[in-house]
């Protein structure tokens, strides 16, 4: 699997030949999901300097990162800049990923969300998703739809089932649509205090079940 066109490959020439270097697929033919020969987690291998893991990581998570980025940006260019920043940060902090503490999917989502939130705060504004080019249809099956949800997400789903519909709605507007709490209050007509309470209740329950999961794993 190639990272770059041949003209831009010099810095990677020192990488030793390994079981994943042959056969190499052309970028144009890259599938949506990463090659079965290289399965997640990719970040520990990126930390070891494996360029194929970089490509696999990019293919596996670009959809996820793009979806999170576009919700918090005004336009496509901003969203793309943000998505690139997220991957650069994943690259830099790959060695901080600890599979004992979280799944890779959740780690990627965490990094992407934190970046998006920090960027919105710096710019003092929020995305208006209508300005993003929506002409493209559904992005098709992602790595999440091909495989089972990460443990955390599966547990979080069970948490959501215990919440009231309006509490789930508040979480959805905050975590999926990227709205601020005052924006959620405006949209739902709920008092701001109630919005915060609903959102915190969901977060608290999710923390509890995830902490239990971590203890079981350890």
């Amino acid at each position: 699997m190639q990272l770059l066109p041949p003209s831009a490959q010099e810095p990677l020439q020192a990488v030793p030949s390994g079981p994943y270097s042959e056969p190499r697929a052309r970028p144009q033919a890259a599938p949506k999901a990463p090659s079965l020969a290289l399965s997640p987690p990719y970040l520990p291998r990126i930390a070891e300097g494996d360029p194929q893991a970089v490509e696999a990581c990019l293919q596996a998570y670009s959809g996820l990162v793009w979806n999170i980025a576009r919700k918090s940006c005004r336009d496509t260019q901003e969203a793309e800049d943000l998505a690139q920043d997220v991957f650069i940060e994943l690259w830099r902090s790959a060695d901080r990923f600890d599979p004992e503490r979280s799944s890779e999917v959740a780690f990627v989502a965490m990094v992407a969300r934190r970046r998006a939130i920090d960027r919105s705060r710096r710019q003092g504004r929020r995305a208006e998703s209508s300005e993003i080019d929506e002409e493209h249809a559904d992005s098709g099956p992602s790595v999440f739809e091909q495989a089972a949800l990460a443990d955390e997400a599966a547990l979080a789903s069970s948490v959501l089932k215990e919440l009231k519909p309006e509490q789930v709605r508040v979480l959805e507007l905050a975590l999926v649509d990227g709205l601020t709490h005052p924006e959620i209050a405006d949209k739902t007509g709920l008092p701001l205090g109630t919005v915060k309470t609903h959102a915190r209740r969901g977060l608290l329950k999710a923390r509890e079940v995830l902490e239990n999961l971590r203890r079981k794993k350890s």
Partner: peptide
């Protein structure tokens, strides 16, 4: 942040939606 990310994933934050623009990858 792990709990928030898990909830976001469970709510479908990483799924569906428009494709990235052409040439994104």
């Amino acid at each position: 942040e792990r709990a928030a990310a898990a909830l976001a994933l469970a709510l479908g934050a990483g799924q569906g939606g428009p494709r990235p623009p052409k040439g994104f990858e």
